[in-house]
Amino acid sequence: MLAAAAVSQSTSDPLSGLLVGEQPEPEARGDWVIVDVVAASLNHHDVWSLKGVGLPADRLPMILGCDAAGTDPDGNEVLVHAVIPSPGWLGDETLDPRRTLLSELLPGTLAQRVAVPAANLVPKPAGLSWEQAACLPTAWLTAYRMLFTNAAVHPGDTVLVQGAAGGVATALIQLGSAAGLRVWATSRDGAKRDLALTLGADAAYETGARLPERVDAVLETVGAATWSHSVNALRPGGTIVISGATSGDAPAKAELTKIFFKQLRVIGSTMGTRDELGRLARFVVAKGIEPRIDSVLALADAREGFAKLADGAVSGKIVIHA
């Protein structure tokens, strides 16, 4: 079957290890099923895998991809939840220390077919297109958990989204706006600030700019480059929720004094549960949200999408049709 796989790794030239070509068919075992993939989408996780982060070289070749929507063996339209808990784990699968994601230990979703546990399938609401559905299981699920599980914000609260155009950032803006939050966003790029406003942000500022008032929560995916600004932007008792560090995880200042003096909460957030994915899908349909899609490509042309993602030239999600 046709798939996009990592066959080698390079920190300086990650796309050199990407092969779009034939890979072995998946095998169902036990309570696993084969899903015929209709649409998938790209995440920074895929580029990190090509750089050798989180994917040991001894697991290559590895089919990439975490997001997918397709049909199960009975013809049902489904979303694929990418978090695979260890055998016997009960409760929140994101807290399982032995959890894995599709494309880390097991072949991923950037393929015509993928094997997944039957318990990882979520019904696709009829109101979601295949392209919209393919956006949800990673970036949008991450944003949903950041906002509604970990930031614990309420309608009328003000949240700051660091970054304005990536998959998680655009999801945060659209979800937050739909939930009645006052959403502010930052970016160095004027066009991306304009994009944030069109997606529902109430204001967009230059990265690091002084804000007109303190915010209730900061949604942080940038990391080192924006960390001090995130701490300084919070009201006393406010919350930073961090789910990534695309600019690095070693800020020049940890800001520990401000964190304890202002009694700030710093909460890590990773992906989301299967139940949260189901709630997210229903919320998107109920609110009429149309996930921001940068481009739609055929699987045979996936390299083009990887190149855009690696260059940071993306506004929203890149969807791949299998």
Rank of each mutant, 00 (worst) to 15 (best):
V114H: 10
L50K: 09
R274T: 15
L64Y: 02
G316E: 10
T186W: 10
G52L: 09
L101Y: 01
V7M: 03
I293D: 12
G91Y: 05
L219K: 02
R182P: 00
F306M: 02
M146I: 02
E22W: 00
P107K: 04
G316F: 11
D31W: 01
H154C: 12
A217N: 03
L160T: 05
T11R: 15
N232K: 14
P26A: 06
E93L: 08
P73R: 06
L2T: 08
L141F: 02
D72T: 06
P236Y: 03
L175I: 04
L60W: 14
L128M: 06
A28E: 11
A225T: 02
V78Y: 05
S8M: 08
D189I: 05
T109S: 13
L60E: 12
I173R: 07
L234N: 03
A302P: 06
L90K: 13
V78T: 04
L181E: 03
Y144N: 01
G163C: 09
N43M: 07
M271P: 00
T94L: 06
I240K: 02
A191M: 01
K262T: 02
A233H: 10
S103I: 00
P14V: 01
Q132N: 13
I267Q: 15
R274Q: 13
A185K: 03
W140L: 06
K317E: 10
L18H: 04
E290M: 03
G75V: 04
S86A: 15
I240A: 02
H229M: 13
L90I: 07
R279G: 03
A225V: 02
